[in-house]
């Protein structure tokens, strides 16, 4: 494993927790973003994620470096899965260890906010009646209506 990576296989949580844990760590926070079945009344069948892989891994490593500067003493791993993901699959995982818990929470939440801003990864939602790449301007089809 790499501490900042794009993968195509299911994400194993323990691997990333083990990576960040060390004898000075008193707290570990893990965030997973999972595929949710219902979004604003629309049922998702599955998601398709695509990434500009080398740039995405570079940007995730940069986020990790930003975090370690803001919260000294933490250790970070970030992994994002691409390809076809189904309900409850983990799309993204962030693991942060820290001597004390406050930094572990704050840094973790900072990471997911930054990932959503700068990492070149795209999500296409596939519903029963359509599909769409999700971007800054999210458009959801009317409930029961046709998309596109």
């Amino acid at each position: 494993m790499k501490p900042f990576e794009i993968v195509t296989k299911p994400i194993e949580v323990q691997k990333y927790m083990d990576y960040v844990l060390h004898p000075s760590a008193g707290a570990v926070t893990v965030f997973t973003g999972n595929v949710r079945e219902w979004t604003k009344g629309v049922r998702t069948l599955y998601l398709a994620y695509e990434a500009y892989i080398p740039m995405a891994e570079k940007k995730m490593a940069e986020i990790g470096a930003e975090m370690e500067e803001k919260w000294p003493g933490i250790k970070v791993a970030i992994v994002h899965r691409i390809g076809e993901l189904h309900i409850s699959d983990i799309a993204v995982l962030i693991a942060v260890s820290s001597p004390h818990r406050k930094a572990a929470y704050e840094a973790n939440e900072y990471a997911i906010d930054r990932i959503k801003e700068v990492v070149p990864i795209w999500k296409k939602e596939i519903w029963e009646n359509g599909e769409e790449w999700i971007g800054a301007q999210k458009k959801y089809p009317e409930k029961g209506g046709k998309s596109r």
Partner: peptide
């Protein structure tokens, strides 16, 4: 170069 539409990871 890469054309980057609004990202939507996570």
């Amino acid at each position: 170069c890469a054309l980057i539409p609004p990202v939507s990871g996570g």
